[in-house]
């Protein structure tokens, strides 16, 4: 079972890269050169490796956020809106608490970011579990709404930076180091694995995920557990937003989360929602992102190739190339 999933993901990635290579070939460049530059830009030097890890970390967190929600049947694709609301909360708190002690401000910012992200994650979940509306439509609408609201806030409200040529928010002075972000991400992942595998709440979650009707019949409050999976998903996205805002950006730019949007889901699908698989999937996406920087510098191939390859990876990751039912019959009992 596990072997088949690994082969499946590897096949998906290979086909995606071949398709991407064909695209490059058709537009008159050399695919081999392109891929070697991508590889060099993502793993070729210590600096490149650092960048790869830096871009992988948000993807890992989003992949886990997607995976925990998906286990309970909630298709969490409103990551973009969660990122926007969390970062808006961070900048607002930072503006409102000018002059307070630094540690208090940091704690308040993080708490506000997590709360905002959880709230944004709960809206589609409530629509799905409460009303039976497709959470995808609601989630995507939330993404567009939050993107516009963010643009409005960073252009016309008290967090807008006056006198800048393009719209952006005021900077946040507090910051978190890259090392502590990496370490805390690893801790969060380990903690998550422990909770899911070894504790009662984790077990309940997986029971509800496997069969909500059975869980209901055996007396588990499945509605509450489903909603709490959405809370965990929102929390993980909030942590991702904290890392991005306080670690790297410090300023909200217009559309800064658009690039991140579906990455978490792609990594989760690629890793077949398995702990190590999702890590490797995120590493692939992070490597693509950090390699694309060198790609534009060295070759004439546009960086958008990476979007294209990402699309193909996701597309082929959905297919099970090796059908389980066929194997069952042949392996026969």
């Amino acid at each position: 079972m596990r072997n088949r999933k690994v082969i499946n993901s590897v096949l998906a990635i290979m086909i995606a890269f071949i398709m991407g290579g064909l695209m490059v070939l058709l537009s008159g460049d050399s695919p081999l050169e392109t891929y070697s530059v991508l590889l060099k830009g993502s793993f070729g030097s210590l600096n490149a490796l650092k960048n790869t890890i830096r871009y992988s970390i948000p993807v890992v967190l989003l992949a886990y956020s997607f995976s925990v929600c998906n286990q309970c049947g909630y298709f969490n694709i409103s990551h973009e809106s969660q990122m926007y609301s969390a970062s808006l909360a961070i900048v607002m708190v930072s503006e409102l608490t000018q002059g307070w002690p630094s540690w208090l401000r940091l704690i308040l910012m993080m708490a506000a970011a997590c709360m905002a992200s959880i709230a944004a994650c709960m809206i589609p979940a409530a629509a799905k579990f409460g009303l039976g509306v497709s959470e995808v439509v609601v989630g995507v609408m939330m993404n567009y709404l939050m993107a516009y609201l963010t643009k409005h806030m960073i252009a016309f409200s008290f967090i807008a930076q006056p006198g800048s040529s393009s719209i952006m928010s005021l900077p946040v002075s507090e910051s978190v180091g890259a090392v502590s972000i990496t370490v805390s991400t690893v801790v969060i992942i380990l903690l998550y694995q422990f909770v899911m595998k070894k504790t009662i709440p984790g077990y309940r979650l997986s029971v509800v995920g496997r069969n909500p009707l059975f869980a209901n019949a055996s007396g588990l409050p499945s509605m509450r557990i489903m909603l709490s999976s959405a809370v965990v998903g929102g929390l993980l996205t909030g942590i991702c937003a904290i890392g991005e805002m306080l670690g790297y950006y410090h300023i909200i730019y217009s559309d800064f989360a658009v690039d991140i949007g579906f990455n978490g889901m792609t990594a989760a699908l690629l890793g077949a929602q398995n702990a190590i698989g999702m890590l490797l999937g995120s590493l692939l996406l992070g490597a693509l992102k950090s390699g694309s920087v060198l790609l534009t510098v060295v070759t004439s191939v546009p960086a958008e190739l990476v979007d294209c390859v990402k699309g193909f990876v996701m597309f082929f990751a959905t297919v099970t190339f090796i059908r389980s039912d066929v194997w069952m019959r042949k392996g026969g009992k």
Binding site: M23, L26, S27, G28, I77, V136, F262, M265, T266, L269, P302, E304, L305, D307, C308, V309, K310, G311, F312, M314, F315, A317, T318
Partner: peptide, 19 residues
């Protein structure tokens, strides 16, 4: 499958615009 089609469409159009 639908979400991956949308991602693929957005990636393809974004890239192909260049060549």
């Amino acid at each position: 499958c639908a979400i991956s089609i949308i991602t693929l469409a957005s990636g393809l159009t974004r890239y192909l615009l260049n060549p």
